[in-house]
Design a protein around this nucleic acid. Structure first.
Lengths: 150, 150
DNA sequence: GTCTTAGTGTTGGTACGACCAACATAGCGA
DNA sequence: TCGCTATGTTGGTCGTACCAACACTAAGAC
């Protein structure tokens, strides 16, 4: 998790390379994210948020589907769901017509937690984009969307 | 190192959040970076490149200064330098008027390796920005610079 | 000239995200 | 029925970013 500790004198050949700027931007973003989760995240991390969000939006799903949907590896889904389950934010039950499969459902407490995290996340967006004007923010977002669509 | 495996159906509340776009952009960038280093990087990683670049540009330095300059932790500097030294890309020698301090110097072979990596890196920049027009690339870079300056 | 404090390199940890391999077992198509 | 694929789980690995503690040196306070 790249956070604080920025380099003090970045070499020329590194300084303006997009890959470098992207990784610094990510460092900034994920530092703020980590700080926010630390302070108001109830000990949850990004995997948990992504899983809760997917469950809330797409409804109950098998772990394999969750993994594919969120881009999280099956094994990591298992681990993260166990944590969510022990916090009663999520329920696992065996799919009746597919005994090998678990159906994962978000609980009311899970939805509540998700909404709380939403608020935290929104505050962080503000912090991350703080140096940009709102026109620049829109531009920046649009450029990333285009970059990722290609 | 986030690489491939993109999510197939990203939840709404996640999809357009800048922190998410930034992390996806970083995933894309660092995936391409990892692939490039894998293919043509002689087994070196980004820490090695950053250290070689700092040494070439700022001249011989102590490990502590290298750490501060590059933003790499002292302990990681030690490890990365040991690898660079075993490849004879770098030389460590005790500072005569400061026996606790090592003076690290890049070797000619190190400079050569650095130039080679420069080429690899340049190719990767192209790949990363490929979906954008050149005007958009300039804009994107400028926005990140502004974001990081703030 | 001691005594304390700050700085240096090193070892050995931790966290987190992102992977991979192997396994038992369930379901399905040929 | 036989094999193949899919599922959940366990137990790893790797890279980046950190932290704590240690031995030791240098420099400043007194």
């Amino acid at each position: 998790m790249p956070t604080a500790h920025p380099p003090s004198r970045t070499p020329e050949r590194v300084k303006d390379r997009p890959t470098w700027l992207i990784s610094r931007t990510f460092a900034r973003s994920s530092g703020l994210l980590a700080a926010g989760f630390e302070a108001h995240g109830s000990g949850l991390r990004s995997y948990h948020y992504r899983l809760l969000a997917a469950l809330e939006e797409f409804g109950p799903a098998s772990q394999a589907d969750l993994g594919r949907g969120t881009g999280i590896d099956r094994s990591d889904v298992t681990a993260a769901l166990s944590e969510l389950e022990s916090r009663r934010l999520v329920v696992r039950s065996v799919d009746p017509d597919h005994k090998r499969r678990n159906v994962v459902t978000i609980t009311p407490a899970g939805v509540e937690q998700l909404l709380e995290l939403d608020g935290v996340l929104d505050g962080i967006q503000e912090q991350v984009l703080e140096p940009l004007t709102s026109a620049q923010r829109r531009q920046f977002i649009a450029l990333m969307v285009k970059l990722l669509a290609g």
